[in-house]
Amino acid sequence: MLTAGYAYALPAKRDPDTKFYIGYVLGFPGAHSQGETLDELQENLREVIEMLLEELSLQTRNAIAQLQGTTFTNPN
């Protein structure tokens, strides 16, 4: 798991109309999700963080590889 060993602030609130919890990840613009329970919200946000870190990792590898004349692609 990419997020193992890290702690992230996950502010959340409950929407009074839908009764869903809505949360986001501080420091990750656009990293937000929702869930019927706080546990579901936490798992959904964990998946968002993992996707963002995978993308960041790919971008970092490509930046380094460009210096070496190669590129990486996302296997998914």
Rank of each mutant, 00 (worst) to 15 (best):
N74V: 00
F72M: 09
D17W: 03
L2T: 05
Q42L: 03
T70C: 08
P29G: 06
P29Q: 11
N74H: 12
K13M: 05
Y21N: 09
L10H: 01
L45A: 00
E55A: 03
D17G: 00
R61A: 13
E43T: 07
P11V: 10
P16G: 00
K19M: 12
Q68Y: 07
L45M: 02
R14A: 10
E47W: 02
T18V: 00
E50R: 11
I64D: 14
R46Q: 15
E43I: 06
L67Q: 15
Y21D: 03
P16F: 02
E43H: 09
L52Y: 14
T73V: 13
L45N: 09
E55V: 05
L53I: 09
L2N: 07
Q42A: 15
R46V: 14
V25M: 05
N76T: 10
D39C: 08
Y6T: 08
N76C: 00
E40S: 09
P11K: 06
E40K: 10
A12V: 09
K13Q: 12
Q66T: 10
R46I: 14
M1Q: 07
Y6A: 04
G30M: 03
S33M: 02
S33R: 04
N44T: 03
L58T: 05
M51V: 03
L2E: 00
F28S: 06
L2C: 01
I22F: 06
Q66W: 03
E47V: 07
N74E: 12
G35I: 02
T3Q: 00
F72S: 08
Q34N: 13
T60V: 05
A7F: 01
L2V: 00
I64R: 15
T71L: 05
T71A: 10
E55T: 05
R61S: 12
A65E: 11
Q59E: 12
Y8C: 04
A63G: 04
A12D: 13
M1Y: 05
E43F: 04
R14H: 03
T18R: 01
V25S: 14
A31H: 08
Q68L: 10
T70V: 15
T60W: 06
K13Y: 04
Y8G: 03
Q68V: 00
Q59G: 01
T37Q: 01
A63H: 08
E40M: 09
F28E: 09
Q66H: 11
E36I: 04
N62T: 07
Q68M: 11
E54A: 08
Y21M: 07
R46Y: 01
G5M: 00
M1P: 10
L38E: 12
V48C: 06
G27N: 05
G69D: 15
A4R: 10
K19H: 12
L2S: 03
E36C: 06
T60L: 09
A31D: 15
P75V: 02
F72L: 14
Y21Q: 06
L10N: 09
G35R: 01
E50A: 13
T37C: 00
E40W: 08
E55H: 03
L53F: 11
F72C: 13
Q42I: 01
G23H: 03
L10S: 10
Q42W: 08
M1A: 11
L53M: 14
A63Y: 05
G69R: 09
T70S: 11
R14T: 07
N62D: 08
D15G: 05
N44C: 00
Q42M: 04
D17Q: 07
R14P: 02
N44Q: 06
S57Y: 07
G30I: 01
